[in-house]
């Protein structure tokens, strides 16, 4: 510990912020890199079908695609609202 250390400002450094942002971004971009190319279209069409029957907005639906050595999983998660049914 030197004399100078006492005068150094201690705040969250911009480098650690950069690292955090990059780790999140890179993980996200890597996972989407291995997705099948039809996925965005499938996602869009599924959403249209669901919206036809249930009152949900974009935020209540999440898609998750996972891949390991033996299998690929497409997970579709819908949070149903209190009054889900549309009057058809």
């Amino acid at each position: 510990m030197s004399l100078l250390d006492y005068f150094r400002i201690t705040k969250t450094s911009s480098a650690s912020l950069a690292k955090e942002r990059l780790q999140i971004l890179v993980a996200h971009e890597r996972s989407s890199r291995h997705q099948p190319s039809y996925l965005p279209q499938l996602q869009k069409e599924l959403l249209e079908v669901i919206k036809k029957y249930v009152n949900v907005d974009q935020e209540s639906i999440s898609f998750n695609f996972e891949q390991d050595e033996t299998q690929e999983t497409l997970e579709l998660n819908i949070v149903l609202p209190d009054h889900p049914a549309k009057n058809l």
Binding site: A15, L22, Q23, V26
Partner: peptide
């Protein structure tokens, strides 16, 4: 600049890549 926390360090970049 790395020491001041203004720049990503070698370890940071290696952790990510």
């Amino acid at each position: 600049r790395v020491k001041l926390g203004d720049m990503l360090s070698v370890d940071d970049v290696q952790d990510i890549l």
